[in-house]
Every structure is written in C-alpha cells, then in structure tokens.
Nucleic acid binder design. Structure first.
Length: 651
RNA sequence: GGCGAUGUAGCUCAGUUGGUUAGAGCAUACGGCUCAUAUCCGUAGUGUCCGGGGUUCAAGUCCCUGCAUCGCCA
C-alpha cells in the first residue's frame, strides 16, 4: 500500500508555533505509523510565500520579499528536525517547478471555460487581504482591523466554483470519510446547502506583484488559494512524474479548522476542474489554547516548539501533544499539563517499567533474554498476551483513524498491566529459591518480549525514545525494519539476545525544571518594565521578606465618603494618611458612607494610582471578604486594635 | 436569527446498536513492596451524567424543551 500525507504549507508571515508543530507532528507520526505497517509513504510539508502581507512584512524590515520569505521558510524547515519530524519533501510556492504547475493548471481550467473575467467592486481590507461583504462591516469598519476598508472597484478573474457544487455535495455524501471528524463534514455540508459563489482568483499587478502571473493575462497575478493549494500536486511531480501516479489517489491532507473551507470546498472543485480524481481524505483538527485562553501574538502567550524541545525533549513534546488533544477538538496547553504527563506517564509508568525490568533481567538473567520454561506458563501470562493482542488491534485502528490519544491510552493500559505483572510475580522472590528458576525465566522472558512490543508501537510517536528502547533490548536493527502486524506477534524476542542496560529513558523532572516554556518575547517597552522587577514569587507561592517590604501599608483615617454615581459597588473615600488622599473602594454594597467617617483602616499606600469611574484612586483599603453557604458575600474592613496615629506603618 | 457541536468525579476525559451496583488517568487519604527514576502495587471514596418534560419493562444513551459554552453561516 501507499500513503501520501501532507500538512498545509505554512504562511511565512509568522514563525512556527505549537499549532504548526502539532499539525506537522501528526503528519510525521502518521507517516511513521504507515511505514511501520509496511507502506510506501510520502510525507510533505512546506511554506506558502506569496501575497501582500509578505511584501509589507519585508518592507518593514527593509528587505525584499524573496529574502524575507527565504528567512522565514528556513525557520520552518529548521524547526522540524528538532521535533524528530522528517518530511520527504519540503515545498516552497516560490519554487520554479511550482510556479510552472500553477500556470499549467490555470491555463487548462481557463481553456475549458471555467475561469472568466468580470468586474467586482467592494470594500477591500488591506489587513485581511480580501474584500469584505457589506454585512461583515461593523460601523463601516473591518471588525478585525478596525479600519475603514478601501472602496475598490476592479476587474478580476473568477473560477466557476459553483459549477462543481452539486458534484461536491454528492461526493461528500457518498464518502463519509472524505472529511473527518464528522463535525467538520457537517459544517461543510451545511455551508454547501447555500449556493456557492464563484471564487476570485486574481489580483491586478497594479496592486500586487509578489505572486504568480496568470498565464493568459500578464496584468494579473494569482491570488492565494489557486497558488497555495496546488502545492499538493507540485510536490509529487504533477503532471507526469512517477510519484504523482503513485501517490495522488491516496492523498490525505491534514489541516487546522481555520482553513477548512479552502481545503473542503475550493480545493476539491479545483481538482475536479483540472480533471483529476479527488484527494482521499481531509483530516481536520482543533486549536491549541494556552492556559485556557486563545494563543495570540498580542497577548504574548505564543508557545514556540523550539523552547519546548529545549525544556522537555522532542519525545515528550510529541507524546504530550498527541496524548492531550482529542483529534478534532480544541485542547489546552499548559506547563503544568506537560510536566504532569512527562512525570506520570513517561517517567513513572513507562520509564520506570523499562528501568526495573531491565535491571532484573541483568541481575537475574545475566543481561540476556532467558529461555522460557513452557511448563510454568500461567493463566495470567496468557491473559497478558491476549491483552497485548487486543492493544495492538486498538492501537492500529485508532492510529489509522487519527485517534492518537486513544491509541496511546490503549498502550498505557498494557504498561499498567506490566507493572502489576511484576508485582504479582515478584521476580526478586523467585530468585531466592533455586526451585523457581524456571518460573523466573518465564516471567523475565515475558517482560523482555512485552518491552519489545512497546518499543515497536511507540516508534511512530517517540522515535528517539523507541530507538533507545530497541537498543537496550539488543534489537535496534531488527525493530527498525519491523513491520506490523507480523512484528507484533508474541514470541518475536529471541532467547539469548544480549541486553544493554542504559540510562533512564525519561528522567523525572524536578519541580524547578517545570518553569514555563519561555513565552513569546514581550514588546520592548513591556520587556524593559519586566526586567526592572524582581521575581515576584517562588514556585511554592511564597514571597520573600524583601519583597513584602516593598508593600507600604499604613494606617489611615477616613474623613469623608460618598457614593459614586452609576457605580453600584464603589465608594469615593477621602483619607488622612497623614496626607490627604482619595481612594476608590469597592465596598458600597457592605458599608454606607456615613458609617465610615472616622474609622481607621489599613491601606496600601504605594499602589500605582488607577482611575476607576473617572476618579483617580491613590491606594487601596484592605478588607476581608467571605461567602456563606447561600453564596451571600460579607465584607469587613480591616482595622487596628487600638488607637494609633494616622500614617503609622504596618509591618 | 439559522445550522451544528459540546455539557459525565476536584481536573482531563471514556462511555459501543438504550440493558446489572456509571468508568479511566491525574490529584487526595491510608496501607503494602523493595526489582525500579522518592518509582510501583492495593484500598478508600465523593457524581441531581447541565435543568425540565416525554417514549420505554429499562435512558448518561432516543425524542421535545430550556440554560450555558463554542464553532460555522447570515
């Protein structure tokens, strides 16, 4: 069998983040898995490099678009090896071969009458690089960029996408696996239930030159999708390369949900218009949030794959991403979560299993795989073999269905079973009595053989760790060539194989090492501010005395208080501390202004002033708040136990 | 506004075509072991399966309705 798997080509307007890494890790894992099943696999990724945004970004840096694209494209290409990702081909839309293929296809589709020239006018947003519909505008502005779009009227070329709408609907309905998971298939069908508009596929050279010229009109360049999507054909040598005939009919694309429409609607109709058979499958995944919030440059919480690898290693990052996300749904990344997975799943479960099993094989079997004593095989042993067979079946089914989290879950069930197997059989006890030697050899053989199968199934997910496991089992070469399902059959481990007890597969990480993966560098001014401040708290949540000393607490007397109109919670207080200050306090629900006059309270005197409801608050009153069983809040102001001069420091 | 998805233990999620006392991992508490990376094993749990109604001998699962969150479309 053959497999052709692709990631989208990544737009070079930003450098690789965890989302790019996820898509590409999926593709790499799947390609390694299909190879493990004996397939001839082609795995392609690359970069998308044309368009106005690239020109602008390049201008900002004072370089040409080509140079800019070269730089960012290299950033992508150089990131993948760090994650043990090994594509067979890295395509760039600026490659001459690609440009030629795009032009060939455009010409073909044009010649058959599926591309026509028409005028178009509308609201063009530079930020979006597209026309916005009347309804998308909010107060006449682009809702994303908050700018008034330009009124542009121009003539352009359009692809007759509508012509293929019915064909596409039928194709999706006839092939339930064409778009998966199902939720995205539904989304596409729902979108297709309305008439499709034709697709604008050009930009006049007067406005954009960084693109592929239309072969039938040199005054225009190709716009986005007719350029980018075709990479999937170029990369395998369309139209007459041997790889093209071999791989095209089995093409599987992986995309994140934001580019569902181009891949599920534009692309199939384009392929159809070009007279080619449709791709086989589209796999759509969700987004990675960071600490429950959306990842974005402006928030500054972008996670960089390179930083993660440095901190945890490629295997842990790959395992975490595959295990934590239910394919198709959104998931949340956090340093706590990856730290937890690393220590419990990798260090404690499988790492420790390997370590204890190999140590026992070394101690009680002279570091060689022992000969089993067939007579001593028990019911439990047979149950273990059955469980491994079941795991292999589930693992294979889930990997094929892109349910990586479930595939791993089933592997970890076996890992748990093996840890229990060791305890119930207690080889260290067996070793004490010579009479148990046969049983001991059997138990140890079972362990070695089970580890072999684990090394086998984990190879696609964690290539480096799996290779280390294989090496420890003295089967590096054999496992590198192994093919499922044959290699998964029980008994593949030869007695007498020499074992090599090496270092720990996944050393436990200590709390200190769980420091956050360096987030996106904050903007310069923010950075300067951050630098000036010392670390505010340690991992244990405690602050130092020095740090506490910076907080200036003082006794202050309330001399005046009034309600702030329009704010139901706020009171404006005037206090002597001893200088007169204005404070805004959120205590209106619990105290009336009158009862406050004359009270002595504790305030934070060196809090940065802030404006609340238009009033500058120069400090903050300390108060305690509690909630009773009914959810009612009670708030009590701080006070000093005896009379003391206003302005006294509290420490 | 239309369509769709999701809502299950403190957290992250499994729960096949409706069928015994609703599960797993993590976290928590207690106990055990010593081969092992302070690891592993065992025990203990807690649930208005989002609310309300309905179908059925039987509903986490099917139907209706409401709420919340999210996505797509307008």
């Amino acid at each position: 069998m053959t497999t052709y798997i692709t990631t989208p080509i990544y737009y070079v307007n930003s450098t690789p983040h965890i989302g790019h890494a996820y898509t590409t890790i999926i593709a790499d894992t799947y390609s390694r898995f299909r190879r493990l099943c004996g397939d001839d696999v082609r795995f392609q990724t690359g970069t998308d490099e044309h368009g106005e945004k690239i020109v602008q970004a390049a201008e900002k840096e004072g370089i040409g678009p080509r140079e800019y694209a070269d730089r960012i494209s290299a950033a992508f290409r150089d990131t993948w090896p760090l994650l043990d990702i090994a594509p067979d081909h890295f395509i760039r839309t600026t490659n001459p071969e690609h440009i030629k293929v795009v032009q060939d296809i455009l010409q073909k589709v044009y010649d058959q009458g599926d591309i026509y020239f028409s005028s178009y006018s509308g609201h063009y947003c530079k930020g979006c690089e597209r026309f916005l519909t009347e309804k998308e505008l909010v107060d006449g502005k682009c809702p994303d960029h908050l700018t008034v779009p330009d009124e542009v009227s121009e003539q352009n070329y359009f692809f007759r996408m509508s012509k293929y709408q019915d064909w596409l609907i039928n194709h999706i309905k006839d092939n339930p696996d064409y778009i998966t998971p199902e939720r995205y298939r539904n989304e596409v069908l729902s979108f297709l239930s309305e008439p499709l508009e034709d697709l604008c596929i050009s930009r006049p050279c007067s406005r954009l030159t960084w693109g592929i010229p239309l072969p039938f009109d040199k005054n225009f360049v190709t716009y986005v999708w007719f350029d980018a999507l075709i990479n999937y054909l170029t990369g395998i040598g369309y139209p007459d390369g041997a790889d093209f005939t071999k791989y095209w009919s089995v093409a599987e694309h992986i995309v994140a949900k934001d580019i569902l429409k181009p891949h599920a609607i534009y692309w199939p109709t384009m392929i159809q218009a070009a007279g080619l058979p449709p791709y086989k499958k589209l796999h759509v995944h969700g987004y990675w949030n960071v600490d429950e919030t959306k990842m974005s440059k402006s928030i500054g919480n972008v996670i960089r794959p390179g930083d993660l690898v440095e901190e945890y290693g490629a295997d842990t990052v790959r395992y975490f991403l595959l295990r934590e996300m239910s394919f198709g749904r959104d998931a949340s990344f956090s340093k706590e979560a990856i730290f937890e997975r690393r220590n419990s799943d990798l260090a404690n479960d499988i790492g420790n299993l390997f370590s204890r099993a190999l140590t026992m094989l070394a101690k009680y079997a002279d570091a060689k795989v022992p000969q089993m004593d067939e007579a001593s095989i028990t019911e439990e042993d047979r149950a273990l073999i059955a469980a491994i067979e079941k795991m292999l079946a589930e693992y294979t089914a889930c990997m094929n269905g892109f349910e990586f989290h479930r595939a791993l879950q089933s592997v970890w069930e076996v890992i748990g079973m093996l840890n229990r197997f060791i305890v119930t059989n207690a080889p260290w006890e067996l070793a004490k009595e010579a009479a148990n030697a046969g049983r001991l050899r059997t138990v140890l053989y079972f362990l070695a053989e089970s580890l072999r199968i684990l090394a086998l199934v984990l190879r696609p997910v964690m290539p480096t760790a799996a290779a280390k496991m294989a090496a420890a089992l003295g089967m590096e070469e054999a496992l590198a060539k192994a093919v499922l399902p044959e290699a998964g059959r029980w008994g593949g481990m030869q007695s007498g194989t020499a074992l090599h007890v090496g270092e720990a597969l996944f050393p436990r990480l200590e709390k200190k090492a769980a420091a956050p993966a360096a987030p996106e560098k904050p903007k310069p001014q923010v950075k300067a501010e951050k630098k000036a401040e010392p670390a505010t708290q340690d991992e244990d949540g405690l602050i130092s005395f020095d740090y506490f000393g910076k907080v200036e607490l003082r006794v202050a007397e309330i001399v005046a208080a009034e309600k702030i109109v329009k704010a139901e919670k706020l009171l404006k207080l005037t206090v002597n501390a001893p200088e007169e200050r204005t404070l805004v306090a959120g205590i209106a629900k619990h105290y009336s202004p009158e009862e406050l006059i004359g009270r002595k309270v504790i305030i934070v005197a060196n809090l940065k002033p802030a404006k609340l409801m238009g009033i500058a608050s120069q400090g903050m009153v300390l108060a305690a708040k509690e909630k009773d069983a009914d959810g009612n809040e009670r708030l009590v102001l701080s006070a000093v136990a005896a009379n003391i001069a206003v302005g006294s420091r509290v420490a």
